[in-house]
C-alpha cells in the first residue's frame, strides 16, 4: 500500500535553517545538512528545502548547499526559492535535487510549469501555493505571503496540475505557525479535485493534527518545520502514532 508521507521542511537563510512564525519572526535552528541527515535516519520520507529569502532578494540558487545535501542523504528532496527560469531548475537538478518547487514565479509565468515539465518531467515540478482565507474565499498569495492575487486557490491548483505540475504543496497562511492544526477544508477540497499528490502544510502542532489531516483529506503527505526542528515531535514517535491509528506510513 502506498504510504502517507511525512516531510520535514527546512527553511534556509544564509545557509542556515530557520522557521518563520507566521512568516514574520525568525529563529535559527541549525545546519541544514546535519538536520537533513538526522531526519533521513529518523524515517522522514522526503525533505523540502526552501530559501525563504530568495524571492524577495532575487537571490539565485542554493546549488552548493544542494550538492552537499545530495552527497549525504538517501531519501528524495525538493528545493525551492528564487527559481525563475529553466536554467535555475537545471542547475538545482544537476546539483542533485530530485524536485524543485516554484511559487510566485509560477503565478507570474504559468508557462514555466509546462516548460519545466517538458524539459525535466512532471515528477520534478512541485507547485507551492500559499493560500489565505480572505473575504470569504481561499485566495492565492505570492511573494512569501505578502502579495494577494485574484486567483482562487482551487482554480489555480487545478490549472497548475493541467499545466504539468507533478505535485501541489499547499500552505495555509491562516494556520502556518499557529500550531492549531492543518487547514482541513481547503486541503480536502484541493486533494479531492486534483489527480496529482497534494502535500498539506501549515499548522502542525501535535501528532493528532497529522492524524486528522490524513483521516479527513486525501492529501498524500504532510509537511511541518518547527515542531520537528525544536524536537517537540519526533518523527519515529509520530509515525508509530499514525500507524497505531491505522494510517499507512513507512516505519
Amino acid at each position: 500500500m502506498l504510504k502517507r508521507r511525512i516531510i520535514p521542511c527546512l527553511d534556509i537563510r544564509d545557509g542556515r535553517t530557520v522557521k518563520g512564525i507566521n512568516f514574520v519572526s525568525i529563529r535559527d535552528a541549525g545546519d541544514p545538512v546535519e538536520l537533513a541527515k538526522i531526519y533521513a535516519e529518523q524515517g522522514a520520507d522526503e525533505l523540502v528545502f526552501l530559501d525563504i529569502t530568495a524571492t524577495i532578494e532575487k537571490r539565485k540558487t542554493l546549488a552548493d548547499l544542494v550538492e552537499r545535501i545530495a552527497l549525504e542523504i538517501n531519501i528524495p528532496f525538493t528545493v525551492g526559492g528564487g527559481i525563475h527560469t529553466l536554467d535555475d531548475v537545471s542547475v538545482l537538478l544537476g546539483a542533485g535535487a530530485d524536485k524543485i518547487t516554484i511559487n510566485s514565479a509560477a503565478v507570474r509565468d504559468p508557462g514555466l510549469i509546462g516548460g519545466i515539465a517538458r524539459n525535466f518531467g512532471s515528477q520534478c515540478v512541485v507547485v507551492a501555493i500559499d493560500t489565505k482565507y480572505h473575504q470569504n474565499d481561499w485566495i492565492v498569495f505570492i511573494d512569501g505571503g505578502r502579495t494577494p492575487t485574484r486567483l482562487r486557490t482551487l482554480d489555480w491548483a487545478k490549472r497548475a496540475a493541467d499545466l504539468g505540475a507533478g505535485e501541489i504543496l499547499l500552505t495555509s497562511m491562516n494556520n502556518d505557525g499557529t500550531k492549531s492544526g492543518f487547514a482541513i477544508d481547503i486541503t480536502g477540497d484541493v486533494s479531492r479535485h486534483l489527480g496529482i499528490p497534494v502535500i498539506a502544510s501549515g499548522g502542525a502542532g501535535t501528532m493528532e493534527h497529522f492524524r486528522d489531516v490524513f483521516y479527513s483529506t486525501g492529501c498524500s503527505a504532510a509537511l511541518a518545520a518547527s515542531i520537528f526542528h525544536y524536537g517537540e515531535i519526533s518523527i519515529p514517535d509520530l509515525k508509530n502514532y499514525l500507524k497505531n491509528n491505522n494510517i499507512a506510513v513507512r516505519i
Partner: peptide, 13 residues
C-alpha cells in the same frame, strides 16, 4: 489508469 492519484509517488511495499 487515472482512477487514483497519478504519478504513483512515494513509498510502497
Amino acid at each position: 489508469p487515472l482512477v487514483d492519484t497519478v504519478p504513483h509517488m512515494g513509498w510502497n511495499n
